[in-house]
Amino acid sequence: MAAPTANAVTAGTGDPARTGGTRLSARLPRLVLYALLGAFCLYYLLPLYVMVVNSFKPLEEITSGGMMALPGSWTGAPWRTAWSEAQIGVQPTGLRPYFLNSLLMVVPAVTIATLLGALNGYVLTKWRFRGATVLFGLILFGCFIPFQIVLIPMARTLGFIGAAGTVRGLVFVHVVYGISFATLYFRNYYAAFPTELIRAAQIDGAGFFQIFFRILLPSSGPIAVVCVIWLFTNIWNDFLFGASFADYDSQPMTVALNNLVQSSTGVKEYNVHFAGAIMAALPTLLVYIVAGRFFVRGLMSGSVKG
């Protein structure tokens, strides 16, 4: 007798008055539901569609009102132009060098911030001391500050340490402001890690770093992935720091793309812009598609405090 009731509730079908299945779907025809969901899929996919199809069109097809249509004649020229020919800085180099800049910036910044965050999380949860929570709160606030508040002094500091206008300088900036998030992730993860394990290791004679490297770190895979993805996405997508602290040689991809699109000289090559936009989006999009589960978890724990 129990089974049919449970089925009605989970499947949301059948006569609601008799079975008690009253989830929305019981009243709203499934067709309408799927139509609505489908319509929103179109809404979210539309810009991506526009970017992709128009990046393969000759310019005239776009300017003649054919933005929504599939390419009449497919061409890879906009991609080639965007990647290696478009005039962005002084030289017509395309986006390639800036893509490289972004890579050189994002890899070390993510690595360093993640490692520091892991160590911080370990200390804050397993070697608690008076004021640890307050300290964590102070670190956490760093996740939320509007970065405008640090632009002026950071520009001076980078000049002072000779890192102004370099990729090195950007790495430093991103490490500093990435630590907060990395610490948040690892702290919340390690808080749920059984303290008895740490105690057992202490009795076994393991020291501070032995416990970290032999016990904690080998079990940190999931949160490390979350943290790396989050930092990667954030740093790759950053525009403010890149625009403020980089010069022509060290600009990251986002800044270069914006320059490409905003440049007011000559004809607007929309197809090249779209190709460039996809290039800038591809790494993070790829990460999202490959490891979406971890990406979502990162988003969540960044907002809903574990």
Binding site: P194, L197, A201, I203, I215
Partner: peptide, 16 residues
Amino acid sequence: PAERNIAMVFQSYALY
């Protein structure tokens, strides 16, 4: 703890 020559079995077993 490591130098007291004691051994401990935990409630959650605390296996690594």
